[in-house]
Write a protein that binds this DNA or RNA. Structure first.
Length: 259
DNA sequence: ATGGCCTACGTAGTAGGA
């Protein structure tokens, strides 16, 4: 089962690039971030015509997440628990069943800039809620994948120019500590289980020729529970998508699970 | 050459992103 994450930076703007990638990569399950669309305006038919079931959690103008799946999407849940006053559309869950049932948790973690400040406080509070959800997923002792745009650069080797990000909300010590608190509960960073060393990125800024100069950062991640990690066969970043026509500033990242 | 973006909303110029 091929499970992917892709921050598309606007579903309307990606009406050509996203189907092109789907037809090339043939993922079974995709979590999308930054659909920047309300549920009613989401072009479901584009995906249903390709055999995907579609569940969205959108809002007007920005944010918004969705799940596409060739398997039925069961027990769908929208919103990260822990704050009923949070109306930002950043979290969606569902269960898909191939050979095994897999809980899919798709996220668009807050950016948090400028830091410090209220947006950074929101990011850290959101990550505290994420940790609580992560603990519950581990306690279930079932295969689960938390994947999406984490807006976290885990280590210096995950940025081409780490010194440029030192005080940024994506790389500040508190951000990395919060991410490691989640990972260290017992999750596997799927990409780092398969690849070592610097030079692996999932985001390149539109500005300043960042793609041409390979000035990237690795901020899209798939964290696996132990039961999911046991099924891991492969993990890859589809970086070639960044060179296509009208690309997102992020590229897809995926795992292949024996499920 | 030390360069300089993209999207939604809405129809001009902000807000937000990373």
């Amino acid at each position: 089962m091929k499970i992917a994450s892709f921050n598309i930076n606007g579903i309307k703007a990606r009406a050509e690039a996203l189907p092109r990638w789907l037809d090339h990569a043939h993922p079974d399950v995709v979590v999308l971030q930054e659909i920047k669309s309300q549920d009613e305006a989401f072009p479901r038919e584009m995906f249903e015509d390709r055999g995907y079931n579609v569940e969205t959690h959108g809002q007007k103008g920005f944010n918004g997440v969705a799940i596409l799946s060739k398997f039925p999407l069961e027990d769908v849940s929208r919103g990260l628990p822990g704050d009923d006053g949070d109306d930002q559309a950043r979290w969606i869950e569902a269960t898909v069943t191939g050979k095994r049932a897999i809980r899919i948790c798709g996220m668009y973690l807050p950016n948090g800039n400028p830091a410090p400040g209220p947006k950074y406080d929101y990011k850290l509070a959101w990550m505290a809620r994420l940790e609580r959800r992560a603990r519950d997923l581990l306690a279930a002792e079932e295969p689960a994948v938390m994947l999406g745009d984490y807006n976290i650069i885990p280590q210096a080797e995950d940025a081409a120019r780490p010194e440029a990000w030192r005080e940024d909300a994506l790389f500040r010590l508190e951000s990395r500590e919060a991410f490691r608190r989640v990972v260290n509960l017992g999750f596997t960073d799927a990409f780092r289980a398969r690849h070592h060393g610097p030079g692996h990125y999932t985001f390149w800024d539109y500005q300043a020729g960042a793609w041409r100069r390979n000035d990237g950062i690795r901020i899209d991640h798939l964290l696996l529970t132990p039961q999911a990690a046991d099924l891991l066969r492969d993990c890859q970043i589809d970086s070639a998508e960044r060179a296509g026509d009208k690309p997102s500033d992020h590229v897809p990242i995926w795992v292949d699970l024996d499920a």
